[in-house]
Design a protein around this nucleic acid. Sequence first.
DNA 1: TGTGAAAATTGTAACAT
DNA 2: ATGTTACAATTTTCACA
Lengths: 165, 165
Amino acid sequence: MAGERPKKTQPHQAALDGTDLAILAALTEDGRMTNAALAARAGVAESTCAYRVRALREAGVLTAVRAHLSPEALGRPLHAIIKVRLGSHSRELVHHLYDRLVALPGVLTVFHVGGDDDFLLHVAVAGPEALRDLILEHVTVHPMVRQTETQLVFEVREGRGLLPG
Amino acid sequence: MAGERPKKTQPHQAALDGTDLAILAALTEDGRMTNAALAARAGVAESTCAYRVRALREAGVLTAVRAHLSPEALGRPLHAIIKVRLGSHSRELVHHLYDRLVALPGVLTVFHVGGDDDFLLHVAVAGPEALRDLILEHVTVHPMVRQTETQLVFEVREGRGLLPG
DNA sequence: TGTGAAAATTGTAACAT
DNA sequence: ATGTTACAATTTTCACA
């Protein structure tokens, strides 16, 4: 009987070998890749590959696989970054505002940051009017919001990510 | 499998009905959901569902499905936004720099923006030293980069996205 | 178009190395 | 811990309402 079995670990550190990295890289490119294709690319047997994938998921390394949609095809060709600066910083209220911002249609990502600003919103909207409406009707209406500043986004590119190599 | 139709469609506008939206919403949550489960959730037959998914992909609405990894589990618990301001803006050089920045390990997203800054980098690194090294060795070394400013990211949350409802 | 039942592919589990 | 085989589940294809 081999030794220890990893328990359902929290998302802390994990020891990854080359096979794991190959699997993660492949799934980052195409999350619907079949297990057989994955195995071939990683150079292991299919059963091994399936086992690794499940282990990576249970270890919290592989958190989700999501579809990515085209903002343009969905009628939201205009991207912007909205910097939000707050006046008060009561913990409860900040969290509440956070929730509201994330739920707004057109909001892709919300960064809660420290420094000059408090929130950075990456949004995709139909056009300038929609952007103005979004800001005026859903952001600056909140009493906590002291100031916003909007930057036009020319282009967004996903980095190669977290994996070494 | 032969008969490809005329063209791979452009990412322009698309007319989406409730079924499409249901499919997209489901795949945005779980991109590996089985076609059978999708069909049940959308309220259509499995074959219909598969057809819709393929159509959405060919229409450029569904651009990709990617695995999401845990930066923490991969040893990169520190997130930051690096604002990059350039001195010169020669088109060629800007593009070249863009390419370099996107390829850096730890760089999750690069926003090319207009306004006060030129690039916004969302990065995930192992710790403060790694952040400093990343900035000094890979960002500010470029002659074009006039100034950087770094904001600590407390938390990142994905918005509900692009779909109405 | 959308549906339902076939074949073909894929994922899963048990077993052997 | 990896590889192989057999079996179940799923996707895909095609004829039809």
